[in-house]
Amino acid sequence: MKRREFITLPAASLGGVLLYTLTGESEKLRAQASSGEIKVALRFFTAAEARVVEAAAERIFPSDASGPGATEAGVVIYIDRQLAGPYGRDKYRYTKAPFVQAGPEYGYQGKENPREIYRAGVAGLADFAELKPAGQDQKLRSIQSSNFFKLLRQHTLEGMFSDPMHGGNAGMAGWQLIGYPGPLMSYREEIDKNYGEEFRRKPMSLAQITGRAVTGWEDEKD
């Protein structure tokens, strides 16, 4: 059996951002006081791969004065679970041959699935986690037009703003950042009020709103 791999994250970052800003103004969000480290079991990446992806996602969506970033939201955990699930192995993409070169109007036509694209892409970023931020940015700019980078960028944003059931958006850091209240069941009393003014609530996840456990498609059994 394959040895289980883990990523170790400081508890103070992961899910620690609970300060809620109602104003939407740029404001440094304080991490909640918590200490120690959390070990998260990886489903697809090796620990070394996860560190590269985490570092790259942090450059794509950095933690800075404008608010929390990819590390605090646990984006790497989100990506790891997506790749381990049906999406990662192209269960729902048409993958029959022949594979042909086609114009951009046909989108991605390659044979490789997201797992394979990541595995090769991350291998090309071997020392990435050890570089300084400026060096990391330079490296990412050099691969900007690759399929790997396009996926990584898209997945970083998905990990920031998808429901926490998928492993990212920890503590709903992403939703707090943009003032998204979560999938509330009704705005019938609000929709024709608040004209031109922000309607902002402390976010709730789908599990909190429905009061039951929900699982994402990545957990689908074959």
Binding site: Y92, P183, L206
Partner: peptide
């Protein structure tokens, strides 16, 4: 549909649509 209010699975990944791996 009670637990289907999830943008990632349904809007980004098209969970309700035809499975393109089988037919497109």
């Amino acid at each position: 549909y009670a637990t289907g209010m999830d943008e990632l699975d349904y809007s980004v990944r098209y969970r309700m649509m035809q499975n393109l791996s089988e037919e497109t």
